[in-house]
């Protein structure tokens, strides 16, 4: 088990470093932050001065080596645009993003799992078809369309719910639903298909044959086995939640990490963007790592194989 954990952790760190190197090079090729700070055009002296100040006059490998050295000392740098430590900028925005993603995850599983189970158990009936129809719709429509429709209906036309900011609990409703809808859809679809698989397994037939009540067959044998692959899917969906939140946070003016990250791309704020990439890669890789480990805990066969 220790070997398994070490191997997976090492691979996760290598992945993050690879992503960081790619991002480091790519954003520097996209243009200079000087253009954003001086959109009317900087003088040649200003350009030289600023590039020296931010170490942009050095070669790309030299810049990367310096950056890695700073990272090793726990120094993530200072925002070029905001002139504040990168960690301070992110710390201010972490809580709203986690709250929103957590709420969406809760909604997604609380609604998606029963919906998928219902669709599997009532297969072929109208209610199952309706459930899956809704799921397909939720899966197919992108976040920004859902967001705009919700804003128009509940904000613009009905004036029931606020559409910008994160000041009161009411502000959470529309962005959380926007983020949760595709998750509900994905969870329901996977839950349905894995349940249908499990329902056809021999051990389910055996459980029924030995006279267990249907509720116990479903609760004890079917659901437990069907939920296993769902852990993987939910892990991937957490990454999707983070990605989705970039758009949702922009549309709803949510004061979270997504807004910082998208803003740093358009403003070419390299230190902010690099930290964002590290953090997001760690989130995605970390979630996958946790999923792998959970899998090993939940299914003894994984441990044996590894």
């Amino acid at each position: 088990m220790l070997h398994f954990i070490l191997w997976r952790t090492g691979r996760a760190i290598a992945t993050v470093l690879l992503v960081l190197a790619g991002c480091f090079a790519a954003i520097r090729m996209a243009g200079s932050p000087v253009d954003i700070l001086y959109p009317d055009g900087a003088t040649p002296e200003q350009i030289v001065e600023m590039e020296r100040e931010w170490g942009l006059d050095k070669s790309l490998p030299a810049q990367f080596a310096i950056y890695l050295g700073n990272l090793a000392r726990g120094d993530f740098g200072v925002s070029i645009i905001e002139r504040r430590p990168v960690t301070t900028v992110y710390a201010e925005r972490l809580q709203p993003t986690l709250q929103l993603a957590g709420l969406a995850l809760l909604l997604g599983t609380a609604v998606g799992v029963p919906l998928g189970a219902l669709a599997a158990l009532r297969r072929g009936r109208p209610e199952a078809r309706a459930a899956m129809g809704i799921a397909f719709l939720g899966y197919a429509v992108p976040h920004f369309i859902i967001a705009i429709v919700l804003i128009l209906v509940f904000g613009y036309h009905l004036n029931w719910l606020p559409s910008t900011g994160a000041k009161t609990p009411a502000h959470y409703v529309l962005p959380a639903i926007t983020l949760a809808l595709p998750l509900i859809a994905a969870t329901a679809r996977y839950m349905r298909s894995t349940m249908l698989d499990v329902l056809n397994q021999d051990f389910v037939r055996t459980a029924r044959a030995k006279g267990l009540p249907e509720s116990r067959v479903i609760g004890l044998h079917v659901m437990r086995n069907a939920v296993l692959p769902l852990i993987t899917v939910l892990g991937l969906e957490v990454a999707g939640l983070i990605n989705g939140s970039l758009i949702v946070e922009t549309v709803f003016s949510w004061p979270g990490l997504g807004k910082v990250l998208t803003g740093s791309v358009s403003r070419r704020d390299f230190p902010i963007l690099q930290f964002g990439v590290i953090a997001y890669s760690f989130a995605v890789v970390g979630v996958n790592l946790v999923v792998d480990l959970l899998y090993a805990v939940a299914d003894p066969r994984v441990r044996v194989t590894s």
């Binding site: 705009i148 804003i151 128009l152 904000g155 613009y156 004036n159 606020p162 559409s163 910008t164 900011g165 922009t250 549309v251 709803f252 003016s253």
Partner: peptide, 14 residues
């Protein structure tokens, strides 16, 4: 930033 959200925020009295 979004124009639709901005207009909604206005007519929604935000």
């Amino acid at each position: 930033p979004e124009v639709a959200a901005r207009i909604t925020a206005l007519v929604n009295k935000e």
